[in-house]
Structure formats: structure tokens, C-alpha cells
């Protein structure tokens, strides 16, 4: 089991190509923790914006009558991957991990696998 800070640190250091990571509460749109980013990538802005992404997808599924849950969401940009992973472990509802990857350095399959493991170990 790892706490928020340790999990963010692990994502940042063990997942190749990671430039920023955040744990976000999508009921409020605020970040519980952030690591990386910088002045040209504001993770608070990303947390609020991607909250809208997650909410929109959940609403769309509801409208379509799909009774399932989101495991992760991948957004592919020209030079970055953005990976959103919703937390499913005991009572951690309403949270997601958000990972920003440099697509030139990242291995997407490996990143997804490692993030899944970090999520399973995370205890808030």
C-alpha cells in the first residue's frame, strides 16, 4: 500500500516518459496531489479540464444505457499521450489518476500496465 505522495512519485520515476502526474477528485475538479508539470503545463488546469472529459464520458454512457464503468481513457496528441485511469479500489470512488507522457520516450503498453499497478496499490 502506498499513499498519494508515494504513488505520484512512483508514477513519475518508474513510468518512462512521464512529464506530469496528478490525482484528481472529479466530483469537485480539484487535484488531491500533483507532481511534475511546470509553468508551461499547469496541472491544476489539466485537473479541472479533464474532470469535464470524465464527466462527459460518464454522462454519454448513461445516455446510451451502457451499464459499465470506465477503466481508462487515452488521449493521443501530436507529441504527448494523456492517460486517465479511474480508481476502483475500495471506497476510492470519484477519483482518477492523470498521467502526461512524452510520446517520443514513452511505451504506451508498459505505461498503462504500470499505472494499473500503481492504482491498485494506492491508498488514500
Amino acid at each position: 500500500m502506498a499513499n498519494t505522495e508515494a504513488s505520484l512519485k512512483e508514477a513519475m520515476s518508474s513510468i518512462e516518459g512521464t512529464t506530469g502526474v496528478a490525482l484528481v477528485d472529479y466530483t469537485s475538479g480539484m487535484a488531491l496531489g500533483t507532481l511534475g508539470g511546470g509553468k508551461d503545463f499547469n496541472l491544476e488546469v489539466a485537473a479541472a479540464g479533464n474532470t469535464d472529459v470524465v464527466r462527459a464520458k460518464l454522462r454519454t454512457m448513461e445516455h446510451l444505457g451502457i451499464k459499465d464503468e470506465i477503466e481508462d481513457i487515452l488521449i493521443t496528441l501530436g507529441t504527448q499521450y494523456h492517460l486517465i485511469r479511474l480508481l476502483k479500489t475500495r471506497g476510492n470512488n470519484g477519483l482518477f489518476l492523470y498521467l502526461v507522457l512524452d510520446s517520443g520516450r514513452a511505451n504506451l503498453a508498459m505505461a498503462r500496465h504500470q499505472l494499473k499497478k500503481i492504482e491498485a496499490d494506492l491508498e488514500i
Partner: peptide, 9 residues
């Protein structure tokens, strides 16, 4: 139901 993070920004 507002996104409070966005409200602040």
C-alpha cells in the same frame, strides 16, 4: 454539480 476546480480557475 459544478467543477469547483474550473470555477476557481
Amino acid at each position: 454539480r459544478i467543477n469547483v476546480g474550473r470555477l476557481h480557475l
